[in-house]
Write a protein that binds this DNA or RNA. Structure first.
Length: 550
DNA sequence: CATGTTCGCGAGTGC
DNA sequence: GCACTCGCGAACAT
């Protein structure tokens, strides 16, 4: 996407440096599979066995997470899951058990039923227009089933208002579209086309993906084995592939890869640095840690540790002459390597991080409000996960507080959770799975990211906006429009407009809270003017049918 | 053109 | 560690 190689790309505030270009990123981490998936899998295996195709499998990617932790967590997860799943999620659980007979039919979602009765591709569907067909697929509540096309927007709106707890002053954007206005309908149809064409353009080509990932994986493997063989402090690093590429949210080109190398630390004291709960200083409790040598007056110095990490990565990369290590960027936790692969300039961010396996900082208490979207047990599961700290600071690094310099502080990261949420994003477990309904949540996010990056190209004053803002907006939106039916794949344009409305509201208020740490306002460093100006641009695009995409 | 199938990659699992 | 398996999403076929 746009900018590789810029100062720091904007990765999530968690991980990346503040600058931004376009991408939200996260860290991923190979977390134990959510139970859902597991259960689902099991069930599938029992029932519909799939034909296994002989694949030429290549990579043996090792997900090596700290073994002990892994097993512990695994156990935990599985256990919870099974228990909780059966207890709590009555609907999904039912689905699993009786997939064959209209799951959900009796429960709350009539939708599936209708789908069941009219599988795609049957003759019943054939006479319908495309649009109608889609509507059928999309789940709706009974009253909505007829008058499909027209009703949808209202439908969504309603849902929104219902759950719109935190919605602020209703500065609404142009109404989603009057119901009985044929012309408007036509326009909306055009917008549909524009959006889906745009999405198609944003797709990553298979062969590009194939050869870029090959060179990236080679280098990552080399760095890992270098660290294992030549260092003490970094030898336990566990790779977590994070960022939009690995979340299947990368648009346009496979040119940005993010790999976090996570160093397990046991027993640390983590204290807030600053008052928004995003930055922390870290103190090692145990005496024998190899990380002791990065201490600076009893706190673990992020800058020292990153400095040495960078040197090791550089050392290793020397042997790979096609790759170039870019200059260190102030406050940025990544060592960025660049190389050109068949005319694509690929950049790989290797991000140092610490894995902290203890409960999340108290600032996260009010965050992650996914209860009504993904469920309370899913939330509880996530909160069992460790969290990550990346060597990142704001400003010049010389600010001091309680004897700690900003440059020696760490920022929390929940990229692994973001990744997990995006992967398993439905309120129904089967959302977007083969047997489930498709939703447009990810498509909406891709479009928003793309819109943002185009607007940034046109106006340099927008450079501080980053794709993480887009991602955060989506996460909040999913918490206010929680049902999968609120995001039906056939309602793309309406859903996208609502998402833009959300984004515009955040901009106009100047407030976009970190999804995990609500006390941190991701827009705090942006001026009101800039925010308002971006809001105006977005409204305009929205009102005019997205000429910028054409 | 829409839908179904194949392919490549990432990633989990079990040996 | 390795081989196998599966899900996702792009590409291809029908």
């Amino acid at each position: 996407m746009t900018g590789r190689g810029r100062t720091c790309k904007a990765k999530s505030p968690d991980i990346k440096c503040a600058k931004s270009t376009s991408k939200p990123e996260e860290i991923k981490h190979e977390s134990p599979p959510r139970c859902t998936r597991k259960d689902f899998k099991e069930e599938k295996q029992k029932g519909a066995t799939k034909e296994q195709k002989p694949k030429v499998q290549k990579k043996t990617s090792s997900s090596d997470e700290n073994p002990s932790a892994q097993s512990i967590r695994k156990e935990k997860t599985t256990k919870h899951f099974t228990e909780e799943v059966s207890k709590q999620q009555s609907t999904p659980a039912d689905n699993k058990k009786a997939p064959v007979q209209g799951r959900q039919a009796e429960t709350t979602e009539p939708v599936t039923k209708s789908k069941k009765m009219q599988p795609k591709g049957t003759t019943e569907d054939s006479p319908k227009t495309t649009k109608e067909k889609k509507c059928v697929r999309k789940e709706k509540s009974p009253e909505q089933s007829r008058e499909e096309t027209k009703v949808q927007p209202e439908d969504i709106k309603t849902a929104k208002t219902c759950n719109a707890k935190d919605k602020i002053p209703e500065t609404k954007m142009q109404p989603v579209r009057p119901k009985e206005n044929p012309k408007a309908d036509r326009c909306e149809g055009k917008v549909d086309t524009i959006l889906s064409t745009t999405l198609n353009k944003l797709k990553i080509k298979r062969d590009e993906k194939s050869y870029t990932s090959k060179v990236v994986n080679e280098l990552v493997d080399a760095i890992l084995s270098h660290l294992k063989q030549n260092t003490q402090c970094f030898k336990e690093a566990v790779p977590l592939r994070t960022g939009s590429y690995y979340e299947n949210l990368k648009i346009s080109n496979p040119d940005e890869f993010d790999v976090m190398l996570a160093i397990p630390v046991d027993r640390v004291d983590v204290s807030p640095f600053g008052d928004d709960g995003a930055f922390y200083s870290v103190e090692l409790k145990r005496g024998n840690s190899p990380l002791k040598r990065f201490e600076e007056s009893s706190t673990l110095s992020a800058s020292k540790m990153l400095g040495e990490f960078r040197a090791e990565v550089k050392e290793c990369a020397k042997k790979y002459t096609e790759w170039e290590v870019t200059r260190k960027k102030k406050g940025c936790p990544a060592v960025t390597l660049i190389r050109t692969v068949q005319s694509i300039t690929v950049s790989l961010d290797i991000v140092l991080s610490l894995v902290v396996k203890s409960s999340w900082p108290s600032f996260t208490k009010e965050g992650l409000q996914i209860d009504s979207w993904l469920g309370t047990k899913v939330k509880r599961e996530y909160k069992w996960e460790p969290y990550y700290l990346v060597p990142k600071f704001e400003g010049r690094g010389t600010k001091e507080k309680d004897g700690v310099l900003a440059k020696d502080t760490w920022r929390v990261s929940f990229s692994h959770i973001e990744k997990a949420i995006l992967k398993n994003h439905g309120s129904q477990k089967t959302c977007c799975e083969k047997e489930g309904e498709r939703c447009c949540r990810k498509d909406c996010l891709k479009l928003l990211k793309h819109l943002l990056s185009l607007l940034k190209e046109n106006n340099s004053s927008f450079e501080k906006f980053c794709s993480y803002h887009a991602k955060t907006t989506l996460l909040h939106a999913c918490c206010s429009r929680t049902k999968d039916t609120d995001w039906g794949a056939s309602s793309l344009s309406q859903c996208f407009r609502l998402l833009l409305e959300d984004f515009v509201s955040h901009l106009e208020e100047g407030i976009l809270n970190n999804f995990f740490i609500p006390t941190q306002n991701l827009l705090s460093s942006l001026s009101r003017n800039t925010c308002n100006s971006l809001a105006r641009c977005i409204r305009e695009e929205c009102d005019k049918g997205f000429p910028i995409f054409k």
